[in-house]
Amino acid sequence: MTATTTSIQNQLRKDFEFLNHVKYEHLVAGLSGGLVSTLCLHPLDVIKIRFAVHDGRTDLTPKYSGITNAFATIYTKEGYRGFYRGCTPNCVGAASSWGLYFLFYNAIKTFIQKGNTQLPLGPGQHLLAATQAGAFTLLLTNPVWVVKTRLCLQYSYMDTTKHIYSGMYDCLVKIYTQDGIRGYYKGFLPGLFGVSHGAIQFMVYEEMKNRYNKYRGTSITSKLGTVEYLSFAAISKLIAAATTYPYQVIRARLQNQHHSYSGAFDCISQTWNYEGGRGFYKGLGTNLLRVTPATMITFITYENISHFLLKQSRELPAG
Rank of each mutant, 00 (worst) to 15 (best):
2 T>F: 09
12 L>F: 14
12 L>G: 05
18 F>Y: 10
20 N>Q: 09
22 V>E: 15
23 K>V: 04
36 V>P: 08
38 T>M: 14
42 H>P: 05
43 P>L: 04
45 D>E: 11
55 D>F: 03
57 R>E: 10
58 T>A: 12
59 D>K: 06
63 K>R: 13
67 I>Y: 02
73 T>R: 01
74 I>A: 04
79 G>R: 09
81 R>S: 07
81 R>C: 13
82 G>K: 00
85 R>K: 12
85 R>H: 08
90 N>C: 10
93 G>V: 07
96 S>I: 00
103 L>D: 02
103 L>Y: 00
105 Y>R: 12
106 N>D: 04
113 Q>M: 00
114 K>P: 04
121 L>Y: 00
122 G>V: 12
126 H>T: 03
130 A>I: 05
131 T>P: 03
135 A>K: 08
138 L>W: 01
140 L>V: 08
146 V>D: 01
148 K>D: 10
152 C>A: 11
158 M>F: 06
165 Y>Q: 01
165 Y>T: 09
165 Y>D: 02
167 G>V: 14
168 M>L: 14
172 L>A: 07
174 K>S: 15
175 I>C: 10
175 I>R: 13
179 D>E: 11
180 G>H: 13
183 G>M: 11
190 P>Y: 00
192 L>A: 02
192 L>C: 06
199 A>R: 01
208 M>D: 08
212 Y>L: 02
215 Y>Q: 15
218 T>P: 11
218 T>S: 12
220 I>G: 00
224 L>Y: 08
225 G>S: 04
227 V>R: 13
228 E>P: 09
233 A>Y: 08
238 L>Y: 06
239 I>N: 08
248 Q>G: 04
249 V>T: 00
250 I>L: 00
251 R>M: 06
257 Q>C: 14
259 H>Y: 10
259 H>M: 08
266 D>W: 05
270 Q>T: 07
271 T>S: 02
272 W>C: 03
274 Y>H: 09
278 R>A: 03
282 K>A: 06
283 G>K: 03
284 L>N: 13
285 G>Q: 04
286 T>L: 02
290 R>D: 14
304 N>H: 08
311 K>Q: 01
